[in-house]
Amino acid sequence: MRIAVLGAGGVGGYFGARLAAAGADVTLVARGRHLEAIRREGLLVRSALGDVRTAPDRVVGSVDELGPTDLVLVAVKLWDTEEVAKQLAPLVARGTAVLSLQNGVQKDTVLRRHLPERDIVGGACFIAAHIEEPGVVAHTGTLQKMAFGPYQADRRPLAEELLVACRAAGIEAEISDDIARVIWQKFVFLIGLSATTAAVRRPIGVIREDPRTRALLRDVMAETVAVARASGVALDEAFVDDRLAFVDTLPAAMTASMHHDLENGNRLELPWLSGGVADMAAELGIAAPRNQTIADVLAPYTLGTPRG
């Protein structure tokens, strides 16, 4: 299987490097100083599960430089999804499949505007990783899981081949027959992690230990479950307590990529995370006051740290 990873940041860089270290044919697509560093020395992933480094010649600067590819793992920020879908259209026309590991629940909807449904494989990942410096990705804790599943049955063999590659690389992975539900389940957790760590500006350990921020964490996830249920997704109301219990198993230092972006003055995925929950809730005629407040508080930082 020839795999391209579009977006070699925390998520894409980690999974791409793990797959490559196990012998998979992986090409990273990166840009800027990160691209330059990888071209010099390869991509280094630092992890409690063991460090790995890719070969310097396994990176390109654009989709146009990719050769024949069976699967593209999309791991760019959500605001780039529309443009990325357009760039991938020629590859997909030649038989390439696309699997998004991005945050949010709207990503595949955006891909479908430009790519055939048959060629989109649903996916979600569970990991805390970020670019520590150009050419280096840091993995926090040991959680590193992928779940994926085709929306159409004739792409099942490709999913099975990816599963074999993931397991050979030591990546926890599974094929889901209801990947849309899995994506929403991940979204509930992600909203809790991203909303609270960004708003409080501290890792999850601080948030879950304080009674008031723990209540905030539960509330933002409960609102997300309510939006899922109102959208027709089969999530039980008690799922929020399942996720809260899961949060209690995480490393205290774990945080969200949105928190890292906020701390570094970068653009935020806020409109697709808590902002997206608030917008979807409004369209459905239900309340999401906690997510709305998070979106309002962080609004000035959406495009990066404001001047002045």
Rank of each mutant, 00 (worst) to 15 (best):
T293Y: 08
R33N: 13
Y151R: 12
G192D: 03
C166W: 08
A282M: 06
A281V: 03
I294H: 02
A165C: 11
A17F: 00
G265K: 09
R181Y: 03
L73C: 06
V200H: 05
V277C: 06
E161A: 14
A287V: 10
F239P: 00
D279P: 01
H259T: 11
T305N: 06
T224L: 04
A195G: 05
V98Q: 14
G95Q: 13
S62E: 14
F189Q: 10
V105N: 11
A180I: 11
K77S: 13
P56Y: 11
G123V: 04
G232N: 02
V76G: 04
H130S: 12
A48F: 04
G9H: 05
S100W: 04
D64T: 11
L35R: 03
T302C: 06
R53A: 07
A153K: 08
D80A: 15
D242N: 02
Q87W: 09
V98L: 12
G122H: 12
R307G: 15
P211E: 09
V29N: 01
A21T: 12
D25K: 10
A245R: 14
L158V: 02
V227W: 08
T255Q: 09
V227H: 02
R58T: 15
T305W: 10
F148Q: 03
I120W: 11
I175F: 04
Y14R: 10
A222D: 09
V182I: 14
V110H: 01
R40A: 13
R243E: 10
I38T: 09
V52C: 06
D296R: 14
D178R: 14
A288Q: 04
I207G: 04
R208P: 06
A230D: 02
A153M: 03
D51V: 05
L163E: 11
V105T: 15
L193Y: 00
R212V: 15
Y151Q: 10
E132G: 14
G67M: 06
E82I: 10
P300T: 09
T302K: 09
V63C: 09
T96P: 15
H139Q: 05
T224Y: 00
T142Q: 13
M280F: 03
E41N: 13
P134F: 05
G12K: 03
V220G: 00
L143T: 12
F189E: 06
G135E: 01
L262D: 01
M221A: 01
V26C: 03
L262K: 00
Q102N: 06
R156C: 04
L268G: 00
F246Y: 14
R156D: 05
E133M: 10
A85D: 01
A30F: 05
A17I: 07
R208W: 07
P56H: 13
R307Q: 15
V297M: 11
K86G: 13
L71C: 03
I38R: 01
R290G: 07
V105H: 08
L235H: 00
A281P: 02
H259G: 07
S194Q: 02
R208E: 10
H259K: 12
L49Q: 08
